[in-house]
Amino acid sequence: MNRRMTTLVAAGILGGSLALAGCATGAEDDTAPSATQTEDAHGGHGSHEDMEHPADGGPVPAGMTEATDPEYPVGTEVTLTADHMHGMDGATATIVGAYDTYTYSVDYTPTGGGEPVTDHKWVVQEELENPGDERLPDGAEVTLLADHMEGMEGVTATIASSTDETVYVVDYEADGMEMTNHKWVVESEMQPAS
Rank of each mutant, 00 (worst) to 15 (best):
E150M: 06
P54A: 11
Y72K: 05
R135K: 12
A27K: 05
T81Q: 05
N2A: 15
A19P: 01
H120D: 15
T101V: 03
V78C: 04
V123P: 00
P33T: 07
T68G: 13
I95E: 01
E126D: 05
A19G: 07
G75W: 09
V185D: 00
E153F: 09
T156Y: 12
T101R: 00
W184M: 01
A10I: 14
S162E: 01
P110Q: 08
G151C: 13
G22C: 14
D40M: 09
A82Q: 01
T180F: 12
T31L: 14
T163K: 02
V185H: 00
E173K: 08
P59H: 15
A140H: 01
I95G: 00
N181P: 08
T7R: 09
G139V: 10
W122V: 00
G57N: 08
D164V: 02
T103V: 10
P137K: 09
M88N: 06
T25H: 03
N130C: 05
K121F: 06
L18E: 02
N130R: 05
T81R: 03
G22S: 15
M51A: 12
L145F: 11
A193M: 06
D30P: 03
D29Y: 06
A82K: 00
P70M: 08
G63K: 04
T111L: 09
M152A: 08
E115P: 11
E28C: 06
G57W: 14
G113I: 08
E187C: 03
T6I: 14
A174C: 09
V142Q: 01
E71G: 06
T180S: 12
V169T: 03
Y108Q: 04
H182G: 03
E126I: 00
T81L: 09
G46A: 13
K121T: 08
A93D: 00
S47F: 04
G46P: 06
G43Q: 02
Y102W: 11
M64E: 03
H84L: 10
D133H: 07
M190R: 01
M1L: 11
D147W: 01
A11T: 11
R3S: 14
P73T: 06
T180G: 12
D175K: 08
E189K: 00
V167Y: 00
T31N: 11
R3N: 14
T101N: 03
M149Q: 04
S47Q: 06
H45L: 12
L80Q: 02
D50Y: 15
I13E: 02
E187N: 04
A19S: 12
E141M: 07
E127Y: 07
A21F: 10
S161A: 15
V169K: 02
A174Q: 04
L18H: 03
E153W: 11
A174W: 07
A62S: 12
P116I: 12
T180W: 08
D171Y: 13
D133W: 04
E52M: 14
E66Y: 11
V124L: 02
I159L: 08
V78Q: 02
G113N: 05
G57T: 14
T7Q: 09
D133K: 10
A160V: 15
A19Y: 10
A160H: 13
M64P: 01
Y102C: 01
G58N: 11
V167T: 03
A21Q: 10
D29F: 07
H84A: 12
T111E: 11
E126F: 00
E28H: 05
E178H: 10
T31G: 08
Y104L: 07
H120T: 15
V96I: 14
T111I: 13
E129P: 02
E71Y: 02
A140Y: 01
A55F: 15
Y172K: 03
P59D: 15
S105L: 15
E187K: 06
